[in-house]
Design a protein around this nucleic acid. Structure first.
Lengths: 361, 361
DNA sequence: GTGAGAACAGCAAACGTTTTCTGTCAGATG
DNA sequence: CATCTGACAGAAAACGTTTGCTGTTCTCAC
């Protein structure tokens, strides 16, 4: 169906080897006029290299696999985007499979990807650590982008939740708040404990006593935020601000406040986390800390390609910092919108300005 | 690096051909005990077929390409999900590339995918009809899932916007509304004109006179909905209901109503379109018509695989119907939530019950 | 007892590349 | 003038499969 090297060879009067070298090996010394001629003929005939043959010969595919728990999760598409943008610069393609939170499917996916259509794998927001023996012994490099459970592990790129939580709390303190409550994330989740730790750490850094009565357990959902907030409003000495561990719970808290006759932000300030899309759509718009998902993907891809080139070489867990998006729910002057939380070392201008999927619209 | 057929052959005492047939060709007559033995040895040795070699030989890859304008668009991930769920049942993988609304990139993507790592291509939410000669003459099957511009074209699966708009209007009429305004989508978009046509058609079907004063041009965005609504409120004989061509504009209209001192739905009913995630998060929750994105992807994948099997065989444009999600913004009794708009012929129970990403939470 | 056919297994070619090795020729060097 | 070197081009092997063809053996019908 497609034009082959041999046909080009015949048409141009050279041998297959020369044609191959002229077309793909810029280092091999081939006469300039020969190369020109061959290139020309190849273009004229519409030559497209047969990747299967090339892969068979070279044992590399210029393709990586992405295993995501669910592409419908709000964080996964930006991670993928970050990965793909980096890949494109290096002529790599990506094969994406959903594991659907199902270990068996994830297993199948890994096996399918090991059969060599890919040179490496990135796990995007994977829950169960499915680095099984198959994967290990295949020798294929792999990287985790935002694994949700488990402790620190090599080859992973994760959000710096501790830092981000501190950022949120610091913002509230800066606005004069001293009684700052927190609605925690679901128990067992890595982000939940990290964000709580960041909250406590920043309180300590600001010399504010930690008050257990101001901490409520949440569930990552709207409902959990709503009911947690109701409890907080009833505390003897109620908070003037609430840090919700994610945006959905922040929204729940806002609605609870409104239903209780409190105005946000005048009567109570509420800050969220994740920078979900709806935070800039809702009334009031929610101040929040972003998940640096795009950059996590970008970084993961960079590291993976590095490993593919230089052989597997484990690296430490890398944490990416999010930034604070100041909107309406805390009462800050929105015009002074800062880009605090930006780590210039890891965030390229380009990502920030053009590509960051987080800019306010 | 990997176990090959030859190694299995040596280990099991059979020839490479027999091993191959035992492992992959269930039709070829090979002795049952032989097959057992070979299968066993293969498993023991951890055999994984080399896809590159297989593809080279058979000229098929069991992989399709998906070209999406932007995976960050709200509709793309569910389309992809629909595609992939179908693919998995047939042991296909999918290579995804973003074209970023850039014809050049799309061109590159097509070229990259033609070099045979894929057996077919689906364009997910693609704008510019980039079916170029390269693609045509490659002979690879392709399908469009939700193309945004251009007129009817073969091999595409699109939402039935005319039907959906009628559905929304009929719902309003059913609630007693007679003066129903519409905020149109951005000009030039296929969906915009189709939804407007559906609105007009349903008015006619209900014997309601069409009043041009009740139609405002929108821009698909919040702001457009907001300002269009303000204009509508100032009309001599104002509408009692508004059909916004998408959810973002519906939200803008709701906020405009609230700012104007009108209660939604008591003073004015508002219905949106798309069933975006935020419609079930906002107050009031927005009644809307869903984009059957998941099913569109699923259908597109099915059609594409059919073409791959039986050779390219163009089919007519296929329209998929969305359904009405009754929520709070129109004042209907929410308990009587129906699944109107469901076409049982094309929507499998499974998709609807388990997989439809649209169920209310 | 012979021949036909079924059931199985192996040989070898082929898929389109890349790459090692070998060869040729021109010019430089002694 | 003989030899060496470098610049280039070609022959052929190899990557791991699949598959058409060729055997071989065995069974069964005549």
């Amino acid at each position: 169906m497609g034009v082959t090297l041999e046909e080009i060879a015949r048409a141009s009067g050279f041998s297959v080897s020369t044609v191959s070298r002229a077309l793909t090996n810029p280092n091999y010394p081939v006469n300039e006029v020969t190369r020109k001629r061959i290139t020309e003929v190849a273009r004229a005939m519409g030559y497209k290299p047969n990747m299967a043959a090339r892969s068979l010969r070279t044992d590399q595919t210029n393709t990586i696999g992405i295993i995501a728990d669910d592409i419908l999760s709000p964080f996964v598409p930006p991670i993928i985007r970050g990965i793909q943008d980096y890949l494109r610069e290096h002529d790599f393609l990506s094969l994406i499979v959903n594991s659907d939170w199902d270990p068996d499917i994830e297993q199948d996916a890994i096996n399918a990807l090991i059969s060599r259509p890919v040179d490496g794998i990135v796990f995007a927001e994977s829950s169960h650590l499915a680095i099984n023996d198959n994967l290990r012994q295949s020798g294929k490099p792999y990287v985790f982008a935002h694994r949700l459970f488990g402790s620190t592990i090599a080859n992973s790129v994760v959000p710096d939740d501790h830092y981000g939580a501190a950022l949120a709390v610091r913002h509230l303190v800066g606005l004069g708040h001293q009684r700052i409550a927190m609605i925690k994330g679901r128990e067992g989740w890595h982000s939940a404990s990290r964000r709580f730790a960041g909250y406590q750490a920043e309180l300590a850094a600001q010399n504010i006593d930690f008050d257990p009565a101001l901490v409520q357990q949440g569930d990552w959902e709207y409902e959990g935020g709503y009911s947690a907030a109701r409890v907080l409003f009833a505390v003897a000495s109620p908070p003037t601000a609430i840090f919700a561990a994610n945006d959905l719970m922040a929204l729940g808290a806002i609605c609870a406040a409104q239903d209780a006759g409190l105005r946000v932000p005048q009567d109570i300030a509420i800050v969220g986390y994740d920078n979900r899309e709806f935070t800039r759509i809702v009334r009031p718009k929610i101040t929040t800390v972003s998940m640096p998902v795009y950059e996590m993907g970008h970084t993961a891809a960079k590291l993976l390609l590095g490993q593919i080139r230089n052989g597997q070489e484990d690296f430490e867990e890398i944490q990416i910092k999010g930034r604070l998006f100041i909107r309406e729910s805390c009462g800050a002057d929105v015009s002074q919108q800062t880009v605090e939380g930006l780590d210039p070392a890891t965030t390229s201008r380009r990502i920030l300005l053009d590509r960051d999927p987080d800019p306010d619209r």
